[in-house]
Amino acid sequence: MPGNRLTRDERGQIASGLAAGLAYAEIARRMDRPKSTVIREVARNGGAHGYRADQAQQATRWRARRRKPGPAPEKPQPPETLRDFETEFAETMAATGVPAMMARVLACLFTADSGGATAAELVAGLEVSPASVSKAVGWLEQRGLITRERDGRRQRYVIDDDFGYRAWQTSLEAMTQWAEVTRRGAALLDGPAGARLDATSRFFRHLREDMGEAAEHWRRTGPR
C-alpha cells in the first residue's frame, strides 16, 4: 500500500474512476486504499462532479504550507469507529421518527468539527444522489433544524449548539397540535370517547407547558 499521502497518480485514478461512474468502494479497491480516504479526498476537493486531479494536488500543497502544527489528539479515532457511530446515531434518530435520509444528514453534520458541509460534501460522504441530499436539507431547513450559509460561491448547511433547543421547540409545536385537535374532539363527542379525548388534550397541554418552561430555563442557565 502507498504511503499515507495520496500521490498525483492516485488522484488521477480517482478522477478517472469518478468519470467512469465507479463507486467509491471500487475506486478504493483498485488503489488499495481505504474507502474513507477516497471519500474524504473527493469531499475536500469539489465533490464527485467537481473533482479535478491537478486542482486537488495543488490544493493539498497549499493546505500543507499554511497548516500550523498543533497538539495531536490523545486518542485518535479510526474512520471505522466514526462511521459506526454516525450509523448508530442516524438509526437512533430514525427510530424516534426522523426520516432516514434526514437522520443521516444530521449525523454527518453533528460529527463534523465545523458543524457544516456543502451539498457536494454530503453527497460524497453519504454516497447518495444530489436529489436525496437536496430533499433532506430542505426538510431540515423547513423545520429550523439547520441553516444555510454562503461560503464563497458555494452554500454550506450548518448545525449549531442550539440544535437541541430548536428540536425541542419543534416538539412543542407537535404537542400544541395534539392538544388542540383532541380538545376539539372532546367538545364534539360525549361519553367515554369525549372523556378520553379531553384527558388526552389536558395531558398534552400540561406537557407543552412543562416542556416550554424547561427549554427556556436551559436557554437562560445552560452552559455556553
Rank of each mutant, 00 (worst) to 15 (best):
G97R: 09
A124Y: 00
P34L: 05
A56I: 06
L82Q: 06
G12H: 06
L189R: 14
R44M: 04
M31P: 03
R40Y: 04
G17H: 03
R166S: 02
R153C: 10
G46M: 04
I39K: 03
A187W: 09
T221D: 13
T7L: 10
R5W: 06
T147C: 05
E10M: 08
K135N: 15
I14N: 00
Q13D: 12
Y24E: 06
R143G: 03
W62S: 09
D210Y: 09
E88Y: 10
T7E: 09
A107E: 01
A199M: 15
S171H: 07
V133T: 02
A56P: 03
W139A: 04
S132D: 07
P78T: 08
D9C: 14
T60A: 09
N4F: 06
P99H: 02
A56T: 03
Y24N: 04
R202G: 06
L197T: 07
A195M: 15
F204I: 06
A179P: 04
G46F: 01
R8P: 08
A186R: 08
T37Q: 08
T170C: 10
A186Q: 13
M1F: 06
R150P: 02
P2V: 14
G194M: 09
M1R: 14
L172D: 03
P192H: 10
R104Q: 08
G222F: 05
T147P: 01
A107L: 07
G115P: 02
L122S: 02
F204V: 04
T147H: 03
Q155I: 13
G194E: 12
A214W: 09
A25M: 14
D190H: 13
A56M: 05
L145F: 01
T37H: 01
E141G: 06
A53Q: 10
G3W: 07
T7V: 11
A112T: 06
A195G: 14
M175L: 15
V38P: 00
S134G: 11
S114R: 06
R205F: 06
R153Q: 10
K135V: 13
P79I: 11
M101E: 11
V123I: 08
T81S: 07
S171W: 03
Q142N: 13
V128K: 02
G21A: 11
A112H: 05
W218A: 15
S36H: 09
T111I: 04
R61G: 09
E180L: 12
A25N: 14
L6S: 02
A53I: 11
Q13K: 10
A95F: 07
W139D: 01
P223H: 12
R154S: 05
A131P: 07
R33L: 08
S134M: 11
P71Q: 02
R153I: 14
G144F: 03
Q55P: 05
A53V: 09
L82T: 13
R150I: 13
G12N: 11
C108K: 05
A90Y: 00
P34Q: 05
F204R: 01
R52S: 08
N4M: 15
A25Y: 08
P71L: 00
R11Q: 09
R183E: 13
L122Y: 00
A119M: 11
A28Q: 04
W178R: 12
A103V: 05
